[in-house]
Design a protein around this nucleic acid. Sequence first.
DNA 1: TATTGATTGCGAACAGTGTTCGCAATCAAG
DNA 2: CTTGATTGCGAACACTGTTCGCAATCAATA
Lengths: 244, 244
Amino acid sequence: MTARDPIDIWRRPERSGVGPKPQHSRGQIAAAAIDIADRDGLAAVSVRRVARDMGTGPASLYRYLRSHDELIELMVDTVSGEYDLGPSGETPRDQLLALARQGRSIMHRHPWLAALLLTRPSMGPSTLRYLESALTAMESIDLPGPSKLQTVAMLTALTSAFVQNELSQPGNSGAANGAASDRVEYLSEAVRSGNYPRLASAFSGGNEPETPDDMFNGIIVGYLAGVGLRQLPQETPGAGEIQA
Amino acid sequence: MTARDPIDIWRRPERSGVGPKPQHSRGQIAAAAIDIADRDGLAAVSVRRVARDMGTGPASLYRYLRSHDELIELMVDTVSGEYDLGPSGETPRDQLLALARQGRSIMHRHPWLAALLLTRPSMGPSTLRYLESALTAMESIDLPGPSKLQTVAMLTALTSAFVQNELSQPGNSGAANGAASDRVEYLSEAVRSGNYPRLASAFSGGNEPETPDDMFNGIIVGYLAGVGLRQLPQETPGAGEIQA
DNA sequence: TATTGATTGCGAACAGTGTTCGCAATCAAG
DNA sequence: CTTGATTGCGAACACTGTTCGCAATCAATA
């Protein structure tokens, strides 16, 4: 479809000294796009719509961006700047957990974020700062560098996937739902058919369901424990207790 | 953009007895679409392209599908049928690990799959069979039903995210790469800038890198351990050893 | 056997998309 | 004050998903 998708936007200076003063800016464009996405869903973020909301024409935006893809990249990195970095706990585990919780709440604020984080690499300055912060939290951990990077990647993936699940649940009217009710309809048909007995019991088996917050904590803590991160830093893996 | 996205395709019969015999079928359409996606990337799967490859017009496909979204749904469920279900190990852990490994290899075969599984609910018959199979593997585990479901969901999310990472790595020429080289370029600039010291050391720190297969195993096993699944079924969490 | 009525095939058209082109307007440097 | 790079942006191109309308088909009914 589109020619190429360099995403080298972060290597280009926003402004280059000469010529007329720009009337817009990347930040302004990102803000407009984010506003649209928050309100009407990611699919509503077209070049034309963003331009219209800014009171200009579509072609103008291409002085600031090379492609629609870069617009999305800009959006992702901008909201990634909403992390409040800085120490937030004693142990590495607590710090990473706090980071993940912040991530979840950002993704709740911007329901389109989770899907994007899961499907594209995303390497803007804010993302790098976030990464650096997570690595700082793990500084005392004895793990090879690449493994730490993988751990962080999987942590944000887990967080995004969890939020994605939350958002597709019925009850969330967000920008593009209504499919949820269709799914439960088909699901209960399938369950009633008797072809999926364990599925059926898995659905009915739940009494006193955990709160989403508790489920999230449990998942993240469980994962971190699996990687070898217990309550105390440097502890030998396999000796601690799992505490959800 | 599009009107509504019911995805109630699985509740509609493919054929309804009366009228002229259809010249195509959902399966045929799915196969054509999958072929295109495997070859030229998911973005190349347009209604027109699928129709052309099948030797017909775009409007014809709408006798079998209600929307482009349903076409994607069909693709996902079709390749989800590539799982070889059935017992594949002794312990629940081993069975789930085997399932995850199969998933990874399917996603390697169809590089567009991972992103779709991460971003959409996807509830076709093949997906349900897969779910049922995973739940069967966990039958001996003492966990409430909803938690088991969450565990499976996170397992496939982790798998998909891992594969997604693999695919976006440089060296993968797949349908839509080339962005990879731009990213490493910007990344090494950032590292050289000195603003991200731990990031820098995390990248350089690696000697004797693990093979991707080992990393994958480690991640999945780690996660399952975190949920309470060690080598032996029913074992008390927190007492076993982590074995990558 | 003839007729009915639902279903299929599909060309044409509509509204919307990302993107490029070309030209006028602007501004800093020489 | 001229030069040359840069910005603003209307117009157009090649796409996209989707709908409409009508001819062709076939099973069940009269």
